[in-house]
Write a protein that binds this DNA or RNA. Structure first.
Lengths: 200, 200
DNA sequence: ACAGGGTGTGACCCGTCTGTAACATCTGAA
DNA sequence: TTCAGATGTTACAGACGGGTCACACCCTGT
């Protein structure tokens, strides 16, 4: 099973907190937030329920922590990309389109943040503000890049691309790899072109 | 004493099977598939768990029946629209864009079919084929309309609009009414315009 | 050697879940 | 009236959910 790396973590003395978050993210991703119990998480993380509850006051807090970590990871990737393509924002945009597609192809379960937004129905859940924050940050990065690339209506383009990628990920889960999601790259490129491609 | 009038009212309405589906759809929509139990559904439908299980072999079957009914309802609305705008497919397309936005504004919980696709993780769940069928039908209708309206790349336009509306609904659940979803109409109209509008 | 904090262990509480059994009741048609 | 089928009622099984308790165990720093 996928217990190998966890055991390794135990041996290498990775703190339980990190092991729990890593394991929980994996299980939540595969089976959904309500599809996995804290006991299963603790056991898969090579620890126990008591230690889990000593680090996270409740399952909801653990969920929020997992999404926070996911957002932190995504932000770090963005930072690296932005540094790499600092002098060519338009290429960064096209690179992001390709990468978003590649990530979706590689994993049919979509975006953890968006999935959580669907699965969490309570409006005052501790994860709600994390979800909103991460998604807003993502869109704002896109908007900044669109501005830097000199597009006419950068804000609207950022919104359109945001909706497009969100839709691709959920469509993938609905109809699989042969559905509209498979044309995400073409659709995104067409939109980018329509928003000012010919400007050069 | 609180027995008679309520029961009579309930009984004189519709057969239990329809009441159960209607009630289940409402509760599933509000709290998610895993967030509501069959007992609560039966009670809210004015019946009991035993009758529910006599009509639907399992909760999963009930879920599949609910999604089937949702798809049937949506198809009927489409048929009416197509009949109404039979001689002006482009206006139908724009009308659909407005209506999709209006529906999303009215209800922040998104699309039941797409939400189910997110929440159901088992690949062999009886609802999976229903989800794929309904979503595929929706895209194909859009494609037919785009073709009829004379767009250049009707297939890609249909895909793009599909992804856009799916994304709008999930974005609404992530960041609320002020997020990118609020610019869905503008984005969709811009894409339609970019794809050539009238063929000239 | 000692103390203290983080961790592991097993049991437990209490509620809810899906699904079933046995029996009572009602309804509509012959 | 009588009978069959659909529905209502109650209780239960068996599993699992989140969350807590008391206590034993390390390990580390002093």
């Amino acid at each position: 099973m996928s217990k190998g790396p966890v055991k390794e973590c135990v041996r290498s003395r990775t703190p339980p907190r990190e092991r729990i978050i890593e394991t929980a993210r994996d299980l939540f991703h595969k089976h959904g937030l309500r599809g996995v119990g804290v006991d299963a998480i603790a056991e898969a993380a090579g620890t126990n329920k008591m230690t889990l509850y000593r680090h996270f006051g409740s399952k909801d807090d653990l969920i929020a922590a997992c999404l926070t970590e996911a957002g932190r990871e995504a932000a770090q990737e963005w930072d690296e990309w932005e540094a790499e393509f600092a002098n060519d924002p338009k290429k960064l945009l096209l690179e992001w389109i390709d990468c978003a597609m590649a990530c979706a192809v590689e994993d049919p379960r979509g975006c953890d943040i968006a999935n959580a937004a669907v699965e969490i129905t309570e409006p005052d859940h501790p994860a709600r503000k994390v979800i909103a924050q991460v998604k807003t940050d993502h869109r704002d990065r896109l908007a900044r890049i669109c501005h830097a690339a000199g597009f006419r209506d950068a804000e609207l383009l950022a919104d359109a691309l945001t909706l497009l990628v969100e839709g691709a990920r959920v469509s993938w889960q609905s109809v699989g790899p042969e559905g509209p999601g498979s044309r995400f790259v073409q659709a995104a490129q067409a939109i980018v072109a329509a928003f000012g491609g010919p400007k050069t």
